[in-house]
């Protein structure tokens, strides 16, 4: 794929298969640019989560080239991956909160992993919990939180370290419409600060709520490009009319 200058992420001819099964992703090629907002859509089983796993470096592809932050992550030594992962915020579909830690400690985890001193953790984590409406639940363990509350903790954890890329897998699946809108506004705010946002969703109503977003659609492991997001330069147009 040509024309990747200034790209934050570049996939070229990427395929992914688990074991000896057929490919779950085939011939994936796209480019993400800093400060863009992307929706990744597709039916269940289309390969959205697999594509996101490649994006947040939980998986290496079976073939193809992936470049991120200017580096080739396929040939990148394993011990250099953590530094790349710290630049990516992830909202997992199943939240993946650490069950033994409080909401506060879960949100603080990316900062602690990055070596931020304890004295510089309390305020931003408190502010973030306040923003997602969980300041009163800071000491609660995930098991005592509702699905929506867990999702908000997961989102707070994903954005606390101001990642360069935010990857969210169905981030509004367990929250009410008001909270879903509020979370989208948070993503937009981060996006305006320069964070590249990729939100996987099958909720078509969400697509209408973010002007200037670009849409990538997965269909049985192959990518289509309804908004021209994958072209170079990308054709910015409002996603769903």
């Amino acid at each position: 794929m040509s024309g990747g200058e200034g790209a934050i992420v570049q996939f070229d001819n990427v395929g992914l298969r688990y074991g000896t099964e057929r490919e779950v992703l085939s011939d994936i090629a796209f480019t993400l640019y800093p400060g863009s907002f992307y929706f990744l859509t597709g039916a269940s089983g289309a390969g959205k989560t697999s594509l996101l796993k490649l994006l947040y470096l939980a998986q290496r592809p079976s073939r193809g080239i992936i470049r991120m932050f200017g580096g080739d992550v396929i040939t990148l030594p394993r011990n250099r991956l953590p530094a790349f992962r710290r630049r990516i915020g992830v909202v997992f579909q199943d939240f993946r909160l650490v069950p033994h830690l409080s909401a506060f400690d879960n949100v603080a985890l990316p900062l602690r992993v990055s070596g931020v001193p304890e004295s510089e953790i309390r305020k931003p984590v408190g502010d973030m919990l306040d923003w997602v409406g969980l300041d009163q639940r800071a000491e609660a363990r995930p098991a005592t939180l509702s699905g929506g509350e867990q999702q908000r903790v997961a989102i707070a954890r994903a954005v606390i370290a101001r990642p360069e890329i935010l990857v969210a897998d169905e981030p509004t699946g367990n929250v009410d419409p008001d909270m879903a809108l509020k979370l989208l506004r948070l993503f937009e705010a981060l996006n305006r600060l320069g964070t590249t946002v990729v939100v996987a969703t099958h909720d078509v109503h969400l697509l209408k709520k973010v002007p200037d977003s670009l849409i990538m659609r997965l269909d049985r492991g192959r990518l289509s490009d309804p908004t021209g997001a994958l072209r170079y330069p990308p054709r910015r147009e409002v996603a769903a009319q």
């Binding site: 953590p82 992962r85 710290r86 909160l97 069950p99 992993v113």
Partner: peptide
């Protein structure tokens, strides 16, 4: 295993 995988995906190193 779950906790370790989470720390790993958040950028935790093997040494940590």
């Amino acid at each position: 295993h779950e906790t370790i995988e989470i720390i790993h995906l958040l950028g935790g190193t093997d040494a940590q």
